[in-house]
Amino acid sequence: MDSFEVIQGAGPIVLGQPHGGTYVPGGVQVCLNDNGRALADTDWHIARLFERLLPEATVVRSHVHRYVIDANRDPSGASLYPGQNTTTLVPVTDFDGQPIWQDGKAPDATEIEQRRLAYHAPYHAALEQELARVKAQHGVAILFDCHSIRSRIPFLFEGDLPVFNTGSNLGKTCDARIEDAVHRIAQGSGLPSVLNGRFKGGWTTRHYGQPETGIHAIQMEITQRAYMQESAPWTYDETKANRLRRHLQDMLTSLNELAFSGQLTGESQ
Rank of each mutant, 00 (worst) to 15 (best):
Q29N: 08
I178H: 04
T88S: 13
I185S: 01
A241P: 12
E113D: 04
Y119G: 12
E113P: 10
R198T: 07
H19C: 05
W234C: 12
I142S: 00
Y119M: 13
R73V: 03
H19T: 00
Q98R: 11
V163W: 00
P55I: 15
K240R: 09
E158H: 07
S151E: 12
K105A: 14
V90R: 05
E179R: 08
V30H: 11
V194M: 02
D160E: 15
V134T: 09
L117K: 09
H124R: 08
V140I: 06
L53D: 00
I215G: 03
K172Q: 14
L127W: 03
G36Q: 08
T235P: 04
Q84W: 13
P107T: 14
H216M: 02
E221L: 10
T253W: 15
G16T: 00
S189D: 04
V28R: 06
L127Q: 05
T166H: 05
A40E: 06
G202Y: 07
I215R: 07
A226T: 05
V92L: 15
V68I: 01
Q17C: 07
D180L: 03
H183R: 08
D94G: 13
G26P: 10
E56R: 06
G167L: 10
L89E: 03
Q224G: 09
Y123F: 14
G36H: 05
E267C: 06
M220F: 14
I149S: 04
T223L: 15
D43V: 00
G26K: 07
R52K: 10
P25M: 14
G201Q: 07
F144N: 00
A232D: 09
Y236G: 06
T88F: 02
I100H: 12
V60N: 02
D250A: 13
P122F: 12
G139M: 06
A38F: 09
S231Y: 01
G97Q: 10
W203P: 01
P18G: 01
S79D: 02
T265A: 08
K240T: 01
A226D: 02
G167R: 14
P82R: 10
P162C: 05
